[in-house]
Structures are given as C-alpha cells and as structure tokens.
C-alpha cells in the first residue's frame, strides 16, 4: 500500500489520467477498439520516463524496501491503472450498446468479448514491457517499442481474425447477447492470462532488476 501511494503521489504522470479518458474511444464508430488499451501502455511508458527523470530508483532504493518491493510496487500501480481502464472500457461498452449504431468493421464489436481482448492486450504489454524495462531502467523507450510492437501485431491479428477465423468471426464478433458462453469463456481466459502474465512479469522483472548495476 505504501508503495502504491508513493507511485501515485510521486510518479504518476498527467498522461496517466488523460489516457484513461481514451476509453471513451469505444464510442467512436469504426475504431479498432484494442488501440484504446495501447494508450494505457503509452501512459505506463510516460510514468517510467517520469520516474527516470526524477531519479525515482535512487530515491526508492534508499527507502527501507528491497528491489523486489520496488518492482512489485510499480507493476501493481500500473496494473491498478489498467484495471481502472478496463472498468471504464466496460462502462463505455455499456453506453455504446445503449446508444446502438453500426457494427465495427475494425475488429471486435463493443461487447463482452472486447473486455477479454483488452485483458489479453494488457497481459501482452505487461509481459514484455516490464521485464525489458527492468533490464535497463534508463531505457524505457526500448521497452515500450518492443511491447507496443507486440500489442499492435496482436491487434492486427485480432482485426484480421474477425474476418478469417471462424471462432472470432462467428462467435466473438457478434452483437451481445449472442454466444455469451463463448464470450465469457474468452474473457475468463483473458483474465487468467492477465493475472498469470502480470505475476510472471513481476517475477521476471524483479530478477532482472536485482541483477542490474544501477548507474544513478
């Protein structure tokens, strides 16, 4: 909790708040909705950049906490932001469904399956960004390029899949409440990947950060 407060009070970048608002892009017709999750990744990159510019690692490591605690604190804080983003995405999906409108030609429609998709995107981002970032905390840009490339590749595959992969096209990319059991299963799988992937990311990141010689 102390580390969460420290991250929020000292490391939170204004882009974090702004990017949360990007969840409203769900209301834009014909928009690749997976990209709204990418913006949260961008916010996390800005938080890590802000941390570097403010010598956050040097400050944190003089506190009575271990390197592992420092890593856990940062990733947990970013995960909380992602969860808030997910809740906002769910809210805007609900609003979008109430408003109605044409089907989305750029990937999954705004429905339950999109939450599963968002969870998978966050899982991919967390599993790549944090371990690369904690192998050299002075180069958050490198970590972001790798993570963003993987996220965009997944989004492209997802969009293509809604035209070519039968399960995506016929089960997930259909207006709610059709195929709800498939969609819930997909979302649960996304949740498992998000939780497991983020936990694995903490483990890998802590190992890398513990081995790192810091040039503070």
């Amino acid at each position: 909790m102390k580390m969460l407060m420290k991250e929020w009070k000292l490391c939170m970048h204004p882009m974090g708040y702004i990017m949360l608002l990007c969840a409203a892009l769900i209301l834009v017709p014909g928009y690749p909705y997976g990209v709204t999750c990418f913006y949260m990744g961008l916010a996390i990159f800005f938080i890590c950049l802000e941390a570097r510019e403010n010598h956050d690692a040097a400050y944190t490591l003089t506190l009575p906490v271990s390197r592992r605690d420092a890593v856990k604190g940062r990733i947990l804080f970013c995960t909380v932001l992602e969860v808030i983003d997910l809740l906002l995405i769910a809210l805007f999906i609900l609003i979008k469904q109430l408003i109605g409108g044409p089907r989305n030609p750029a990937g999954l429609d705004a429905g339950v399956a999109l939450i599963g998709e968002a969870l998978i995107i966050f899982a991919i981002f967390n599993m790549i960004f944090f371990p690369v970032y904690y192998s050299d905390i002075n180069k958050p840009g490198k970590a972001f390029v790798f993570a963003a490339a993987a996220v965009f590749l997944w989004i492209l595959l997802e969009i293509a899949g809604t035209y070519t992969v039968p399960f995506l096209r016929d089960a997930l990319d259909q207006p709610d409440p059709a195929n709800m059991s498939d969609k819930l299963l997909f979302t649960l799988a996304g949740l498992a990947l998000f939780l497991g992937g983020t936990a694995k990311s903490v483990q890998m990141s802590a190992k890398k950060f513990e081995a790192l010689d810091l040039s503070l």
């Binding site: 102390k2 407060m5 420290k6 009070k9 000292l10 403010n54 010598h55 956050d56 040097a58 400050y59 003089t62 506190l63 009575p64 906490v65 503070l216």
Partner: peptide, 24 residues
Amino acid sequence: FVSAGMTYYTRKKLKAITAVTKTF
C-alpha cells in the same frame, strides 16, 4: 544517503515528498 548530484522529484513540493517518505 545524500548525494549532491541527485535531486528527486524536482517539481513536487517538499511536503509531498516528505508525506510519502515518512510512511516508510
């Protein structure tokens, strides 16, 4: 530990830095 070459959170008020630090 105090290092002359290192200043933390240059745009935060001292009271904000203190409020976080004391919790640890």
